[in-house]
């Protein structure tokens, strides 16, 4: 009987480990040295969207790291907007997401789109973090106070107070054209976002 229990245990442990190991993969840039906090694998999505494609995007104003206040509606009629919510500064996947967007400014420009990066971290934390990324061409906004209010407006605030890893593409009329609330443990493939941007003009 004990042998059977042991066998079951081995089998269950084996099956669980597969899921854990498969979902934890990420590559950290040496730019952050040893300063990235390991969060492990967490629940892929822990919030419920309150907007959907075709809805008007909820307006907001947030402070940016550069000191300006950025309001979504200021781009109405002028630019498409991509919102990139990432969960938290100094964590593995978030730290290696925006540097990729940073080298495709031409793609955003070609599609007449501004990118806004948003986290629930405060400005000093964001300042230190994005300095490690080099010079970002797009505004980085702090949704720190009231805590996560903008993330909540879109339905991407998780129960522990960080946002989802989520992308929204909003056209010049203010309508949401693309939503990707991604598994928080994985980076969204770049081609999906670029594909969404390229559809804006069609």
């Amino acid at each position: 009987m004990q042998k059977i229990r042991l066998a079951n245990l081995i089998m269950v442990a084996g099956m669980l480990s597969v899921f854990v190991t498969v979902s934890m993969a990420f590559a950290i840039s040496d730019a952050y040295k040893g300063n990235i906090y390991q969060v492990g694998t967490i629940k892929p999505v822990d919030s419920k969207l309150v907007v959907k494609k075709g809805n008007q995007a909820p307006d907001f104003s947030l402070p940016s790291v550069s000191g300006d206040k950025v309001t979504l509606s200021q781009f109405r009629g002028k630019k498409n907007v991509a919102l990139s919510f990432v969960p938290a500064a100094w964590t593995p996947i978030c730290s290696d997401q925006w540097p990729g967007y940073n080298i495709i400014k031409d793609t955003f420009d070609q599609n007449d789109t501004i990118l806004l990066g948003i986290t629930v971290d405060n400005i000093p934390t964001l300042f230190a973090w994005i300095n490690q990324m080099g010079k970002l061409w797009f505004p980085v906004l702090s949704d720190f106070w009231p805590h996560g209010a903008v993330a909540k407006k879109y339905g991407v605030l998780r129960s522990n107070g960080v946002s989802e890893r989520a992308l929204f593409v909003i056209d010049k009329k203010g309508a949401i054209r693309y939503i990707d609330v991604h598994d928080i443990n994985k980076r969204p493939p770049l081609e999906d976002l670029v594909g969404a941007l390229e559809k804006l003009g069609k």
């Binding site: 042991l6 089998m11 442990a13 480990s17």
Partner: peptide, 13 residues
């Protein structure tokens, strides 16, 4: 057969 399955899974892991 359970131990065999377990070992196979661990190998995969």
């Amino acid at each position: 057969t359970l131990p065999v399955i377990g070992i196979l899974l661990l190998t995969l892991v």
